[in-house]
Write a protein that binds this DNA or RNA. Structure first.
Length: 571
RNA sequence: GGGCCUGUAGCUCAGUUGGUUAGAGCAGAGCGCUCAUAACGCUUUUGUCGCAGGUUCGAGUCCUGCCGGGCCUACCA
């Protein structure tokens, strides 16, 4: 048994996320966490909302709410959706928590003690009309390069040229449109990541088997140009972790907060502390997951995220933890995902294109989404969501292969023997062959899950389901029953026993259906099999069960067309 | 501009350190079964492995160039 710490990238607070965000971190991390728990490991699975930064303030303003209230409301919305998708977080925290404020300030203080924080004076654009400093991308104007009138302060989308806000001709605020802008001198703290470069480089080199996507992005940042650059970790905002606090070694930082990307990953730790608080545990409980001097030395820590998050998790966050000089647990494996596209294009919040998490739950059960998304996870490259593919995957895999298997076995038994596991006959060669086949598949399935090769794992799981149908077809108990009811009884008994096995093995992907299967078979306590033969005799003759309702209703062509139209968007 | 990823059957993808007739699922075709959500099983068609060179006894796998798709490029998160 191992102790495994799993974190999913934190969803940003400003709105409801779409399916691409779900499949890029929360869903695979959940399947992994569930699998690891099922195998008997001690798992701590953490997620939280990422609440700070300019977009949150603007979203709150748009909603006409104080930002703290807005975040509290949105946290609840996201929490409910996470529950709807059966995301089994041990704790779903908030980066605006007191725990995170304290920890962020603490780590910043340590970094300062170790000479890794530098005060830099820089020029920032201030908008009088908006009453705030504007991040580069919130300034728009005419591109000096191509003349496009909608260039942003960080880059012109038309000609892709990198820009500085001061390069723009006729700059205006993207928020209010105001041209009443002023360049002000303002001081900020920088994290001297450049001093950490060699250490980070060695650390990354020492990691085995990280996805290419993860290491190549990290290496690029480490070695591109002059190498890893220092990074500003404070902002002129109201909403965030204050830079000023008791004993802070900085003056002149009043009214500033830490940059959201500095405090967000720290929330992984803080959320674990929030978990301890919520469960009435002391600090030792969460420290045993995060402090190598307090029990975390045997923890395996796995992070899940979309590829956009990789630089922060491979470089910035490790810089923070290493630079503190304290024995914080560093990540052992970073699983990163590509993007999910929608019907060949991008998901678009502004154009209402694609499916968002709340909508998804309104139209289909979570198991359907979990299965399709995970069996098509963008692991090696971007993958495309289409309604046709979704319909095909759900109908074929879930309804036909698994659902119908359960249905045909239980209904056949009911009609010939009643709703009890039948007595008589004995397992023979055919059953041994299935045990051998499933045993081989199960090993492959487990290996793929250990390696976090989710798509491959789902393919093996599916093959395990198929083995049940093959068995029935080969042995044909409906025909054997006519001449040898005892032999047929043994076949049915074996097939019925496959159902709780399938339920247990499928739980990481389709927890609701899995639970239904166990309940209908009266096998709620079924555990992950260590001995397959024994597991397939777990339901003894005479054990009562109930024929379950249809586990997965199919998606009709009409419904699919309807959904295609409903989600086509305006764009 | 630079960097990374990617291009394998109609579709979605596997193909380990280069090694015998290139695989799976879906879709198509045929057969079988009739317990079941017209479900299941078996058999089966299709590939100049993006293009052009090169290395090698041998390349989908390595090298070079080109073409196509995607992503990143540090103040959105």
């Amino acid at each position: 048994m191992s102790r495994i710490l799993v974190t999913s990238a934190l969803p940003y607070i400003n709105g409801i996320k779409h399916l691409g965000n779900l499949v890029g971190s929360q869903l695979p991390s959940d399947a992994y966490a569930r699998f690891m728990r099922a195998r008997g490991n001690e798992v701590m699975f953490i997620c939280a909302t990422d609440e700070h930064g300019t977009p949150a303030e603007l979203a709150a303003a748009k909603a006409g709410k104080p930002v703290a209230d807005f975040c509290e409301d949105m946290w609840q919305v996201q929490k409910d959706i996470a529950d709807g998708f059966r995301l089994s977080f041990d704790f779903f925290g908030r980066s605006s928590s007191e725990r995170n404020r304290d920890l962020t300030q603490h780590l910043a203080g340590k970094l300062a003690e170790n000479g890794l924080i530098e005060e830099v004076s820089e020029k920032q654009v201030y908008s009088h009309a908006d009453g705030r400093y504007l991040p580069d991308r919130y300034i728009e104007g005419t591109c000096p390069n191509c003349g496009s009138e909608n260039a942003r302060g960080d880059q012109c989308e038309n000609c892709t040229k990198q820009l500085d806000p001061t390069d723009l001709i006729n700059p205006r605020s993207a928020i209010s449109g105001s041209t009443d802008l002023e360049v002000r001198e303002t001081k900020h703290l920088y994290l001297k990541q450049s001093k950490m470069r060699d250490k980070l480089d060695k650390w990354i080199d020492s990691q085995k088997g990280w996805p290419i996507l993860t290491t190549s992005i990290a290496k690029k940042w480490l070695h591109d140009g002059d190498g890893l650059r220092d990074r500003g970790i404070t902002r002129d905002l109201d909403w965030g972790v204050p830079v000023q606090y008791d004993g802070a070694p900085w003056t002149g930082m009043e009214g500033k907060v830490f940059y959201v990307w500095f405090d967000a990953p720290i929330e992984y730790i803080a959320a674990t502390a929030e978990w301890a608080d919520a469960n009435g545990l002391d600090d030792a409980a969460w420290e045993s997951w995060w402090r190598e001097d307090k029990g975390a030395d045997d923890v395996k820590y796995v992070q899940f995220m979309g590829k956009d998050n990789v630089p922060f998790h491979t470089l910035s966050f490790p810089s923070t933890l290493m630079g503190s000089g304290e024995p914080w647990k560093l990540v052992d494996y970073i699983k990163s995902y590509n993007w999910l596209t929608y019907e060949g294009g991008k998901f678009s919040t502004s154009q209402g294109r694609g499916v968002f998490m709340n909508q998804a739950l309104e139209i289909m059960p979570s198991d359907y989404w979990r299965w399709w998304l995970l069996s098509n996870a963008p692991e090696s490259s971007d993958s495309d969501f289409t309604w046709a593919s979704f319909q095909g995957g759900v109908n074929k895999d879930l309804a036909d292969v698994l659902g119908n298997f359960v249905s045909r076995v239980t209904k056949f038994c009911r009609s010939k023997f009643g709703e009890v596991v039948p007595e008589g006959g004995a397992y023979g060669k055919a059953e041994a062959a299935v045990v051998a086949e499933i045993g081989k598949r199960l090993t492959a399935y487990q290996d793929h899950m250990e390696a976090i090769e989710i798509r491959k794992a789902t393919a093996e799981l599916r093959a395990i389901w198929v083995a049940g149908n093959e068995y029935l077809q080969a042995t044909a108990p409906w025909s054997v029953y006519k001449t040898d009811p005892d032999a047929a009884a043994a076949m049915v008994r074996f097939a019925l026993n496959l159902i709780p096995l399938y339920a247990v093995l499928s739980e990481p992907f389709i927890p609701d259906a899995s639970a239904k299967m166990l309940v209908s078979m009266g096998a709620e306590g079924a555990a992950w099999p260590t001995d397959l033969s024994a597991a397939l005799e777990a339901l003894p003759a005479g054990h009562a069960f109930t024929v379950p309702d249809v586990l997965f209703a199919k998606i009709t062509d009409d419904r699919r067309v309807e959904l295609e139209e409903q989600f086509a968007g305006q764009g």
